[in-house]
Deep mutational scan, measured.
Amino acid sequence: MAAGGDHGSPDSYRSPLASRYASPEMCFVFSDRYKFRTWRQLWLWLAEAEQTLGLPITDEQIQEMKSNLENIDFKMAAEEEKRLRHDVMAHVHTFGHCCPKAAGIIHLGATSCYVGDNTDLIILRNALDLLLPKLARVISRLADFAKERASLPTLGFTHFQPAQLTTVGKRCCLWIQDLCMDLQNLKRVRDDLRFRGVKGTTGTQASFLQLFEGDDHKVEQLDKMVTEKAGFKRAFIITGQTYTRKVDIEVLSVLASLGASVHKICTDIRLLANLKEMEEPFEKQQIGSSAMPYKRNPMRSERCCSLARHLMTLVMDPLQTASVQWFERTLDDSANRRICLAEAFLTADTILNTLQNISEGLVVYPKVIERRIRQELPFMATENIIMAMVKAGGSRQDCHEKIRVLSQQAASVVKQEGGDNDLIERIQVDAYFSPIHSQLDHLLDPSSFTGRASQQVQRFLEEEVYPLLKPYESVMKVKAELCL
């Protein structure tokens, strides 16, 4: 049975990233139509530049190519590739079939990587351009969430054990800070992308030097003109047959890092959902379990974690691919890159769409948070109580021993009897502590235990987050809708 299948058929496997999760716009960027249309555009740009620099290419040939950029006979191309065992030459023939007058000058002087690699770089750039505003929107939604809850005390956790208090907004800023680093890295790697350009079979530009009869300047002009037509500021000066596969490492490393950030955020949300302090959106008709109707599973956060793990592992592909590119190139890269580049971007696209949807509907339960604080705060307040007693004339050592005994009794009630923490009640009825009984409410005010959390939130948002989001103001209103 021949390899390949009808990918629109229910009898043929289709990647869930495309069929179930990723956005239509990201799927289109990695589609065959987008790819092969870009090949034709690159052939047109090459012909236009070659004509401008004096090669015998007519206006009629150029116009014929322009008129057929979208006229792609995919069936013919597939048949040609089956016959020739070469995808680029299959599309040269297919393009030439609908451009008979231009057929002889299509791909003039070029090698397969002229269309293959340059198209990949265009796709990487455009895919990054799709991700950047999506990530900015996630940051914006979380920034709104953090600002609104900047002063809401909550129990902090280290080692997932109760620690000092923080605020809900401050905790959210930990998430935002990681995503801001990801946004900066995505922008950097996007701006650092260079075009492969017009380089020939081993990167020496020998074929173009021959076409222009040894004119170095025209060869350099050709490279520059096509690079500018493709919208790049610069091209690699040095290439082998391909652009260095280190570029793929750079791009997928940034995406993998984004995956790590999203995994951490969504894990926190899942843990908070278990504590009943916070939940992701839950639709009115949504079913959490087929057997347990009360369940409210954090399905979206779980999906993000599941896909983020996949995204983090994909960076190993370009690392290994770059390491086995012998001399000017081997074909070890080809099949692998067809999979890992598309999957990385479709996965990143999915987790950003999902995280935006989550961040637009996060639900906080202040009463649950308050109750958990009441359970733990008495123990945390013991040092403040000791200091207040010393100020009232008591002995630190005597007070410490009193607190120690009462704390152990209260802990026994919590752990052995399943009761509430009654340390404060014990202190309130103990005559030894009568000098500070009137101060206990103040000493137990949760806001006095959150330090500068709310001020940190305000400063972080104003100095770091809002300036970073400013270039994306025009796209901030787009909502994230999930079908599944």
Rank of each mutant, 00 (worst) to 15 (best):
R171T: 01
F145R: 06
P293Q: 00
V364I: 08
E70C: 07
Q164N: 08
G169N: 04
C172E: 03
M76Q: 14
T166K: 05
H159T: 02
V88T: 09
Q161K: 03
V478W: 15
F232M: 09
W326C: 05
L69W: 09
I385F: 08
V226I: 06
F30Y: 11
Q439L: 13
R188H: 14
V115I: 14
A230Q: 02
R337Q: 03
T450P: 03
V414G: 02
M181K: 08
N421H: 10
I427G: 04
S140R: 12
H107G: 00
G393E: 08
D216A: 09
L209E: 11
K82E: 12
Q177L: 15
G96F: 06
S412Q: 12
V198R: 02
L468R: 07
R296D: 03
F433G: 04
F74W: 09
F232S: 03
G116V: 14
T38A: 08
R245I: 00
R371L: 02
E81Q: 08
S447E: 12
R196D: 06
Q184D: 12
D422G: 08
S395D: 14
H93T: 15
T202S: 13
I176K: 01
V324C: 12
H400V: 06
G4Q: 15
N384L: 11
P281V: 12
M299P: 09
K284D: 12
G156L: 00
M316A: 09
H310K: 11
E25L: 13
Q416G: 11
G288H: 05
L42A: 04
S438D: 07
T38R: 04
F30E: 02
L443R: 04
L255A: 08
L307C: 15
F95A: 07
S207W: 05
S412W: 12
L271G: 05
S31Q: 08
D332A: 00
Q241E: 04
R338G: 02
R20D: 00
T450V: 11
I339Q: 15
A260T: 01
R234V: 07
A411P: 03
L44Y: 08
N384M: 13
I57M: 05
F282D: 10
D333S: 00
L84N: 09
V478L: 15
I287V: 05
D422Y: 08
F379H: 07
H310P: 03
P378L: 05
K170S: 02
N384W: 04
A348Q: 02
A348M: 11
C483Q: 15
I287P: 01
G8N: 15
E383A: 01
G418W: 03
D223G: 07
F195S: 06
T52R: 11
H91S: 12
H263P: 02
S12R: 15
V138K: 06
E60C: 11
R452A: 13
K479Y: 10
R137H: 09
S207T: 14
F379L: 05
I358T: 13
Y13H: 08
D182S: 04
A2M: 13
G4S: 14
Q375H: 06
M380H: 03
Q439E: 14
R196L: 13
Q41V: 07
M389A: 07
V138R: 02
R329S: 01
D441E: 13
G361Y: 14
L124V: 14
E280T: 03
K187S: 12
L444A: 02
K367G: 08
F232D: 00
L377E: 01
H86D: 01
I339A: 08
S15N: 14
L130H: 08
V465R: 03
G418E: 01
L108M: 13
R190L: 10
L275F: 07
K187V: 11
Q458N: 09
K82H: 10
K66I: 13
P100N: 08
T202I: 08
L135D: 04
R329Y: 01
M380P: 00
T154R: 00
P467H: 05
I238F: 02
A150H: 11
H442S: 09
L362A: 09
D11W: 14
S261N: 00
R452L: 09
Q184V: 09
I369N: 11
D398A: 12
S261I: 04
P133I: 15
G288L: 02
R338F: 00
E50S: 08
L468V: 14
C483G: 15
Q241F: 00
E302N: 00
C266H: 10
R374M: 07
E50D: 04
K66W: 11
Q285P: 10
S290M: 01
A388T: 06
L142R: 02
A431N: 13
K367L: 04
I105V: 13
R371V: 02
I269P: 02
D317W: 01
L468S: 14
V390K: 02
Q428H: 13
G259K: 00
S448W: 09
I105D: 06
D349M: 10
P16L: 14
E302R: 01
V92P: 00
G214W: 10
M278N: 03
P293R: 00
G8T: 15
Y243L: 09
I358E: 05
I373E: 00
Q409R: 12
G4C: 15
H442D: 14
Q285S: 12
R396G: 03
L275D: 08
F208G: 06
F95E: 01
G169S: 04
V414I: 13
N336P: 01
V475D: 11
M316G: 09
L186C: 15
P366Y: 04
S23P: 04
Q241T: 01
E328F: 00
D430M: 08
C340E: 02
Q375T: 04
E473G: 14
K295M: 02
A143D: 03
L352V: 10
